[in-house]
């Protein structure tokens, strides 16, 4: 079952020289439990595509289907609501909420979406090796720990779609590999559709499918 489908996505940005096309008709689909890697040069539009998939940005044309719902057709508030309940996001910079404890960070999106399951959350924390760190604040954690919190936060709401933008970009290789493996494992276990932006061919190699973006088109 395809949980995330992008259909003929086009996006251009305004610049001094006129509109610069970034995405020129990109279509892809990610099925439940599937892990798709999106690679490409810097500036090829990978991050933009991911942001559009998350509903953080609207495409100029095309559809973003999450389940049966077209995210692109929704207004801002609708996109936010959809994002809350069905999309999990993991960023290169972790982007935890600095004022909340690890525990609160983990549960935040789930509670926001009204699907908080304390037991599941606790299990997730154990699985992520965060049980002892729940009372700490993000800035007291190492990078790898922070990213594990971010992954846990994204998964705690049991999203249909998990989107990750260079999740190991800020980590050393060993830590990165461990975190990456954990994310893959958990996403697969939850049956989420995982779209992953990375520039690492090695990581991409561990995914079910590889898409390469070049000059705004899938190669």
């Amino acid at each position: 079952m395809t949980l995330l489908a992008l259909e003929d996505i086009r996006k251009s940005f305004a610049s001094a020289e006129g509109a610069v096309p970034v995405l020129q008709g990109v279509s892809l689909g990610v099925a439940a439990g599937q892990v798709v890697a999106l690679t490409g040069e810097s500036g090829s539009g990978k991050s933009t595509l991911l942001h559009i998939a998350a509903g953080l940005e609207a495409p100029d044309s095309g559809r973003v289907l999450i389940g049966a719902q077209d995210m692109a057709a929704l207004p801002d508030a609708g996109r936010a609501k959809l994002r809350r309940g069905t999309v999990g996001l993991v960023f290169q910079q972790f982007n935890l909420v600095p004022s909340l404890t690890v525990g609160a960070n983990l549960a935040f999106q789930a509670r926001l979406a009204g699907v908080h399951d304390p037991e599941f959350c606790a299990a997730l924390a154990v699985r992520l090796g965060l049980s002892d760190l729940l009372a700490r604040y993000p800035e007291q954690l190492s990078g790898g720990q922070q990213q594990r919190v971010a992954i846990g936060r994204a998964l705690a709401a049991k999203p249909k779609v998990l989107l990750a933008d260079e999740p190991t970009g800020n980590l050393d290789e060993a830590t990165g590999d461990a975190v990456f493996a954990l994310m893959l494992e958990l996403a697969r276990a939850q049956g989420a559709a995982l779209l992953l932006v990375t520039h690492s061919a090695r990581l991409a190699g561990q995914c079910d499918r590889n898409l390469h973006l070049r000059a705004g088109r899938l190669a």
Binding site: A54, L56, D76, A77, A80, K81, L82, R83, R84, G85, V87, L89, F91, N95, L96, V97, F108, Q109, L112, A113, R153
Partner: peptide, 9 residues
């Protein structure tokens, strides 16, 4: 930003 990403408008 993270709040926005998690679905606050």
């Amino acid at each position: 930003a993270p709040l926005w990403a998690m679905g606050l408008t």
